[in-house]
């Protein structure tokens, strides 16, 4: 996997850092704020550019309010990943539900890339 994304290597998070964990509102990956700030979101990086204003981006585009943790080791194989539409993302820990509203700019970015944003706060269920 690391082979897939040399920039990203999943790092274990010590228990006492759990409270710094946040979930990306776009891809639901769960990382510490520090990781988001330093490296950006491993899945969304180019679209959501963390290079400038890293901290601000990390704070606005990720949310500390999330539920359910899934550590996905083989995203392509996993039905769970497929179901949650995480199958194209890097292996790592993801959240089943992320609560928060993506800022307008981020939404614009996604739109500009012709990417449909799936809110991960549970509202998608209604589309079923």
């Amino acid at each position: 996997m690391s082979s897939e994304n040399p920039d990203y290597k999943w790092r274990p998070v010590p228990t006492n850092h759990f409270r710094y964990l946040r979930a990306c509102m776009v891809c639901a990956v769960v990382l510490t704020l520090d990781e988001f700030t330093r490296k950006g979101c491993p899945n969304c990086h180019p679209v959501l550019d963390y290079t400038n204003h890293a901290l601000e981006m990390a704070q606005t585009c990720t949310s500390p309010i999330y539920e359910g943790c899934i550590s996905i080791d083989k995203p392509t194989e996993s039905w769970i990943a497929k179901w949650l539409r995480l199958d194209k993302y890097v292996p790592g820990v993801y959240a089943t539900k992320v609560v928060g509203d993506l800022p307008e700019e981020a939404l614009d970015n996604l739109n500009a890339e012709n990417i449909e944003y799936i809110p991960r706060d549970g509202s998608e269920n209604n589309l079923e």
Binding site: E4, C44, K88, E116
Partner: peptide
């Protein structure tokens, strides 16, 4: 295009209806 990540994210641009999943 700045690398595959974008690509990866872009994958989701078409949402497969859940009932197909």
């Amino acid at each position: 295009h700045g690398g595959r990540q974008r690509h990866r994210l872009g994958d989701s641009s078409t949402v497969t209806p859940k009932r197909l999943l």
